[in-house]
Simulated assay, not measured.
Amino acid sequence: MFGCRKKAEIPIYSFEKHQRVPNKNTTIYSCHVLILEGIFALYDPRVLDLLDMKIFVDTDSDICLARRLARDVKSRGRDVRGALQQWHRFVKPNFELYVRPQMKNADIAIPRGIDNLTAIAMVVKHIQRALNAKSEAHLKKIAELGEQVMEKPLTDHVTVLDQTPQLRGIHTILQDRKTTREDFIFYFDRLASLLVEKAMDRMTFTSHEVLTPLNLPYNGLRCASAICGIVILRSGGVFEIGLKRVVPDCKIGRLLLQSNIRTGEPELHHLKVPPNLGNHQVLLLDPQIASGAAALMAVRVLKDHGVEEGNIVFLTYMATKVGLGRLNAVFPEMKIVVAGIEDAWTSRWIDEKYFGC
């Protein structure tokens, strides 16, 4: 299966206890190639319909027995006698009855396993061709979407800060190449606070009554749910001080996206978010949006973790019209708050100036 992009929780199985380990899973995410391996991998027609390539690895039964004895004794707490009895009574006859017939469902059968270098090389080349084709198709769709959104206005869910004299003055300081790093950090933190404050206006609030110091009731508002800031590493870290100034009790999560040098597609390399993320309103932080490809994937990650689209506010300093348009078109219920819009794509520079490297 090529080009998988969704999160999956894989149960952990205990061979010693012959059952799944309770409340323990392995999370996999954003793989380009998903390998489904198992004795019944080619059995269920519903699974076969999902596979791009089906392989049956045929290994000599003597080698299988030797590997099984070494594994069962070393890793599964069994003795040689018990392993042999299991092999002759159950494993081998059931293999011939149920597993070997699945060979007819395979696209290719590889004898001799890892020793068959020619067959393995053929499989690798097939996978590379399939990945290249899917990457080209994906990038083509992104480009087509960019052409479409350039002709459409942004919706009300996109908020651009009013370009007041104060804000234009801050822009001027930040854009000036002569600005020292100390001044850049000071004024960017100030602008980050303004962006977070504006983003808070897009959050959902509920009525809440409190007693004033004079013991009088006051009908006010409070956030409908906890707020979590998700930093897109590393550049999104420039917003953390401004975020903490406005929402000091905000939880922080992080995800690392990097573009594949060969294909240009974003890849998820690290993810750490608070538990029950779906119960939060989320501020997604990244100071620059160019094509919007990484931003699209970041939002997809949040949605896969249970966050409703309407509970996400994307916070950015500068963005291109095409990048904003793509985000707005694909996730129309998400709010976006931006300090300014650029006409053309620029390389990332804000985090380098802020962090000094």
Rank of each mutant, 00 (worst) to 15 (best):
V124C: 09
E151H: 04
I127Q: 01
E147N: 14
K152Q: 15
V149A: 07
K152L: 10
N132Q: 11
S135W: 06
G146R: 04
I142A: 01
L131N: 00
A133E: 12
A133Q: 04
G146V: 01
A121M: 13
E147G: 12
K134I: 05
I142R: 04
L145D: 02
Q128F: 01
G113S: 12
I120F: 00
V149H: 03
Q148N: 11
S135M: 06
Q128Y: 01
V149D: 08
H138T: 10
Q148Y: 05
V123W: 04
R112G: 08
A130H: 00
H126K: 11
I142Y: 06
D115C: 06
K141M: 09
E151M: 15
E136L: 00
K140F: 15
E147W: 05
G146H: 13
A130R: 00
M150A: 11
D115M: 14
Q148P: 03
V124I: 13
H126T: 03
R129K: 01
H138F: 00
L131S: 00
Q128N: 02
E147K: 05
E136F: 01
L145H: 08
Q128I: 03
M122Y: 14
Q128S: 11
M150C: 15
L145K: 06
A130K: 01
E136Q: 01
G146T: 12
K134C: 05
V123K: 09
I127E: 01
N116L: 15
I142D: 07
N116H: 15
A143Y: 13
K125G: 14
K134T: 09
K152D: 09
A121W: 02
Q148W: 09
Q148C: 01
L131A: 00
K125I: 11
V124S: 13
S135R: 04
V123G: 02
T118Q: 03
M122T: 12
K125Y: 11
K152W: 13
P153E: 08
G146C: 04
V124T: 11
G113V: 03
L131Y: 05
N116Q: 09
A130M: 03
E147A: 05
A121H: 10
I127G: 00
I120H: 02
A121D: 06
L139D: 03
E136H: 02
N132Y: 04
R129F: 02
R112S: 08
A121L: 08
E151F: 04
G146Q: 13
A119C: 06
L139C: 10
I127Y: 05
E136I: 08
Q148G: 10
R129G: 01
N116R: 05
A119K: 04
A137P: 03
I120Q: 13
A137Q: 13
E151G: 14
I120A: 08
I120R: 06
K140C: 09
I120G: 10
L139A: 06
K140L: 10
M150W: 09
K141E: 14
A137T: 15
R129V: 02
A119H: 03
A130I: 01
V123I: 14
E144H: 09
I127M: 05
M150P: 08
H126R: 05
E144T: 06
L139E: 07
K140W: 07
A143F: 14
K152S: 06
L145N: 03
A143C: 06
D115F: 04
A143T: 12
A121I: 02
T118N: 15
L131F: 00
H138I: 07
L139S: 03
